[in-house]
Design a protein around this nucleic acid. Structure first.
Lengths: 356, 356
DNA sequence: AGCGAGTATGGTAGCGGTACCAATTTTATC
DNA sequence: GATAAAATTGGTACCGCTACCATACTCGCT
């Protein structure tokens, strides 16, 4: 006796498509997953059927039937506010498309790395995604290597020989942002460095210095302060930079938006107008950059797209590590310069330059 | 001919557990999903086996085999920075536990509500989760009702007759926070209201006023300004409140942390010390409340727990709507008062009160 | 004791895909 | 043009779990 299908509501299945195209389900499956060994006429027939029936493969069935890995651990520590949510959205979006299951776990950097990792591995994760700052935590990386897990590092400063990475060209971005300030006439700069443990800090600084060198500005005339990517650290660095009696910079480049926002807050408190008296630029295009006033000129990173790519890449990595051939991919994503209100022309030389 | 299992690496299956416990897979399945009609001895036998084998049911297989709803749409618009990431983490965590699939989709509030919703429904979502501010968008709610979809509203100001809600007692929380300020000796207050479209704004104000009324402080002596939950709007409201020539408040209650942070920034700019000259409190315990200096006294919402609950609740709702019996649940979560550095004792009456 | 009703379990057939191998067709080679 | 090799395609058996029905057993009741 034939029972009716349990779930009539559900969309078309692979068998519906196969019937419509006059082929077997297997052929449809082949077309969906990298259509190898399928004649192009057949492929088009199948594609047409897919389109007509508005067919979407079921992620559940896919991961169940296939031996393809489907559990991915996403470790996070404490990326700047807002970064994580965009990252999660991108990762989720892609994982629901491909049928991978993402397990999100907080990992406080130092001691607990091993424990957290162990927990995930026991839960059956096949690969890991590491957004900053974990992508550069030596403890975490060592632990992953020890466990022999596949991993993708998102947002490090430079490529890695034994791990897949996804990043932007921080150096070029910093250079471009600096050139924007130079184009506005600025010649006296301040720079607030990022956390010394994160290699992007160096990249942003070196891109900044490279642009200055090209413009013939010596490093000595630049005031550089150490920051740690937090609002608080930005405040302290800005205090040192602005309370000084020496000639004040006309533009400050903070290595991220949080510190740029703090700098702007302090500048206001000291009675400077931004950008009339002082231009301030940040980096990352975090939500805070439009929350504060004036909105920050900054560099946008396609965080969601990078997270999406990370999901795909970690799958590749798992396959790669199992087969044991090939080298980890190093992906570079494009950045965008975002000019908002916090940067403007250099102040007219009524006081400083006139005195010269 | 017997072929070996394809995936030997994978953990224990339901059959392994069944064998270990000496029962059939079906019985194990019943134990996992609300063990109805299972003798308690058997149940314990099965539970022991589950523990020993460290068994976790496969979400993929579950959603594939069962007709239980497994696709949940999570619509978001633009909740305050940081809220979303905590919300997503909670929702994800729970969904990976229960095997539900969460589709996250951005929904710009007004016109596109219908389109976004249609897209999700076509993708086969069975229920929706609505974090603020969408939980109170009339367009979105109307559209959901029209489509007859199950939905859970997280973070509205009050319960709803025809929709499940998860919230905290905003009024009681605001009252408690105000009592904290009263306890520090404050008697002259400012209040920055939240967005008029969100009912939590009213609740927070009325809780505040209730506490003042109890303390015998008349509403007339309170300076109230309109805000819209954004940093920018907080700045403008604070400007009106602090630029005035009248007697300044000694404590300002902003209806969320963003506006409290803006108020603190402006206070600094005007030369006031926080909390020595002016106490400022916020609401929500967003990341910004510890990013700024001084860290904000505020009310913590268990956002992740609420999101977790939302995933479970939306499943219940789907079942409820299909069966057509019962009324939507109204869940209340506990809040926590977080006292940090932005609130302190009322300034000593050297100037203001001495003159009186 | 006999019988229907209720409770506790087991058996079977899928859910929607993919792995694996067999069957078929095409192409290359002598 | 015959035969081997390669490229396409189809068939079958599952992946891990649950819906549905069948069975066995426990009671309470006339």
């Amino acid at each position: 006796m034939i029972r009716p299908r349990r779930r009539a509501i559900q969309g078309a299945t692979i068998r519906d498509v196969a019937e419509r195209a006059g082929v077997s389900p297997m052929t449809v499956s082949r077309v969906i997953n990298f259509g190898d060994n399928v004649r192009s006429e057949t492929r088009e027939l199948v594609n047409a059927a897919i389109l007509e029936l508005n067919y979407t493969p079921s992620p559940a069935a896919r991961s169940l039937a296939g031996s393809l890995p489907y559990r991915i651990g996403l470790l996070y520590d404490n990326p700047s506010t807002g970064y994580l949510s965009e990252f999660l959205i991108g990762a989720l979006d892609e994982s629901s498309r491909t049928g991978a299951q993402v397990l999100v776990e907080k990992c406080v950097e130092t001691e607990l790395a091993a424990a957290t990792l162990g927990k995930l591995l026991r839960a059956g994760v096949d690969g890991l995604i590491l957004p900053p700052p974990l992508c550069e935590s030596l403890e975490v990386l060592a632990e992953i290597r020890r466990a022999g897990a596949a991993a993708v590092s998102v947002g490090p400063g430079h490529p890695s020989a034994d791990m897949a990475t996804i990043r932007i060209d921080n150096e070029a971005a910093a250079r471009e942002l600096t050139e924007h300030l130079l184009g506005l006439g600025h010649r006296r700069f301040g720079f607030i460095k990022g956390h010394p443990n994160q290699t992007v800090s160096d990249k942003r600084l070196s891109g900044f210095l490279a642009a200055l060198a090209e413009a013939g500005i010596s490093r000595e005339s630049v005031r550089i302060e150490q920051g740690y990517f937090t609002y608080r650290s930005g405040l302290e660095a800005a205090e040192k930079m602005l309370d000084d009696s020496g000639p004040l910079p006309t533009a400050i480049f903070a290595a991220n938006d949080d510190m740029a926002a703090a700098t702007a807050a302090l500048a206001h408190r000291l009675g400077y107008e931004v950008p009339e008296d002082l231009s301030i630029v940040g980096f990352d295009d975090q939500p805070i950059s439009v929350a504060v006033w004036p909105a920050l000129t900054t560099v946008h990173q396609p965080v969601a797209a990078m997270a999406r790519a990370a999901v795909d890449l970690v799958m590749d990595e798992i396959r790669r590590m199992r087969s044991g051939v090939g080298t980890p991919h190093q992906l570079m994503h494009p950045y965008t310069l975002i000019v908002r209100e916090s940067s403007g022309p250099v102040p007219q030389p009524a006081s400083a330059s006139a005195a010269k």
